[in-house]
């Protein structure tokens, strides 16, 4: 049987969840035995080269590019997992959700205390730049998500255990300290 194929991405996240994945330490060698990686910042494959089994999503959607990447993942992965608070609930970036996007952009580029030399009062508008969304969306509000791995970031052990459970078809152990967050 061929190895399951895994893809990962970081949308509106801080890469902390990817760091946590790397925190499985020497087990990364086992992981490579267990799975094959496709599109992922870990191996720097930029585009899907084949259909994948598991997609790990870090971060929510704050701009149009995030939405396209997420939809691309949904199309190419059998199972999608929201990894970490930002993917699950919008996380820290969603703190802007109570503020209209106009105010956010004006504060960042026109009125903020750190703004200097923007004499032409330009808010970046190059067509190449992804367009900001009206608010930050958790992934499951954009596409269907199959599983959620909570944590900020989810502990390395949790990511490891979840992947192994999924690949081997065994039950995931969820001890209290994994599901309590206070």
């Amino acid at each position: 049987m061929s190895k399951p194929i895994v893809a990962t991405t970081s949308l509106a996240g801080c890469f902390g969840c990817h760091m946590s994945l790397l925190d499985i330490d020497e087990r990364i060698l086992d992981l490579i035995e267990l799975v094959e990686f496709n599109k992922s910042p870990i191996n720097d494959i930029k585009k899907f080269t084949k259909k994948c089994d598991i997609g790990l999503i870090e971060g929510g959607c704050c701009n149009s590019e995030n939405v396209h990447v997420l939809k691309d993942f949904r199309e190419n992965c059998k199972i999608l997992i929201s990894v970490g608070e930002c993917a699950i609930m919008g996380g820290l970036p969603a703190m802007r959700n109570g503020i209209p996007i106009r105010e956010c952009l004006e504060e960042a580029y026109l009125n903020g205390p750190s703004v200097k030399n923007n004499t032409e009062k330009i808010i970046p508008n190059d067509p190449e730049i992804p367009i900001m969304l009206d608010r930050v969306y958790p992934c499951h509000e954009v596409v269907k998500i199959d599983f959620h791995l909570p944590g900020c970031p989810p502990r390395a052990d949790l990511i490891w255990d979840a992947l192994v459970a999924l690949i081997t078809g065994s039950e995931l152990k969820l001890p209290y300290e994994v599901v309590k967050f206070d």
Partner: peptide
């Protein structure tokens, strides 16, 4: 079988207005 109801066109309207961009999504 599944649709989250998310509408990208709607979600970018406000930012396009602020930046004066044409949505090129």
């Amino acid at each position: 079988e599944y649709d989250t109801g998310f509408d990208l066109t709607k979600a970018v309207i406000e930012a396009c207005e602020v930046t004066g961009r044409v949505p090129n999504i």
